[in-house]
Design a binder for these strands. Structure first.
Lengths: 188, 188
DNA sequence: TCATTTCGTCTACTATAAGAGACGAAATTT
DNA sequence: AAATTTCGTCTCTTATAGTAGACGAAATGA
């Protein structure tokens, strides 16, 4: 279980306890309302179990919240300050492509990602990935060839590109050294 | 498993398959990227297993999406037309309080709920439940005593109240017959 | 045409989520 | 103060989530 998941699990646990206590419900009461055993809810709140989608659905139902909203609240619950050593990092085992989530979960829809793209690596994205967001790409090191639909942009260190309407895109590093760039995006 | 959960599970399954296929990834490829076995991903996509929060976290990580966003997309994926017989209903076993989700998941932030509140029943909500939404209450049958912080509103059939700033609220049915009302709310 | 690879499903097994009920601590009642 | 209730945790069992690897079908290549 990596850092990202640990945070998620802990945040979900806290959020469920919070929603329950806000309503003044005991474990037994929530158990009765949701149909999930109180032993299980206790374990979930203490991070001793990872709830299934089924159980999360029942709990969010009892709270009268859509599941996505319960999760969003959980993610928002964390700190406004995200220390460098707590930022979630994800690395593609195959290409060495690395993505670091800079922003705290409380991003108010604004997210910063720092990406390292090894030389020669090509990363395609479907148009749907850009459907509900605006984003900019700021190259901080190396060079990047960014294909936005049919249009190809050659970006060098310091360049910053704002993306247009959603299109299938490809990130490609044509150079001999790692490319580094920052993605800034706002949701919706 | 009630209707709400069935839909959720099915929608999650579809969404995961969609995100995977959009990226042109095979089960093996997603398995490698996410650290979840391809057998498990196959079961999840075919609704033969309910993924744990841990596994959902790994999958959303591989897609580069926050978990709440993946779930939100899953919920949005359903039809624009929500047939009456497919609307999720939740009933409090203790009080008989019933809530029906009228709107399709594609509500664009607009949700309609129809509530039946039995005579004499009292339902409190914490202020936090109203934090990121505007809502109105429209009484369609019986009468409703709605306490918004210190202020108490007596609502009769046909009345419609717009809620103010977030405060702890209480729904109470002072009458002798079921109260029925519609909640219209916009998120954020 | 036959071999090789790739894909998703299936089988068998292990790890763990989930439920039923017991238990001790704390609060409440009489 | 003793009895009763309420609360959250713990124990034990069962159900099922999750993994490793085999398998047949389809696609690809020689």
């Amino acid at each position: 279980m990596d850092l990202h998941e640990q945070q998620a699990a802990g945040a979900i646990a806290e959020r469920i306890r919070l929603e329950r206590e806000d309503r003044g419900w005991s474990l037994s009461e929530l158990a009765e309302r949701s149909g999930v055993s109180k032993a299980m809810i206790s374990k979930i709140e203490r991070c001793e179990a990872s709830p299934t989608a089924t159980v999360l659905g029942r709990l969010s139902g009892a709270f009268g919240l859509p599941l996505s909203r319960l999760l969003a609240l959980a993610e928002q619950a964390s700190e406004r300050l995200m220390r460098a050593d707590r930022q979630a990092i994800w690395k593609d085992p195959e290409t060495g492509y690395t993505r670091r989530a800079i922003s705290p979960a409380t991003g108010n829809g604004l997210e910063l990602l720092e990406v390292t793209l090894p030389a020669g690596v090509r990363i395609p994205y479907p148009a749907s990935a850009f459907a509900f967001q605006r984003q900019q790409i700021w190259v901080t090191g190396g060079e990047l060839e960014f294909a936005e639909g049919e249009v190809v942009h050659h970006l060098r260190q310091g360049d910053c590109l704002e993306l247009g309407s959603p299109q299938p895109c490809v990130f490609f590093n044509p150079g001999k050294i790692d490319a580094r760039y920052v993605i800034a995006l706002t949701r919706r």
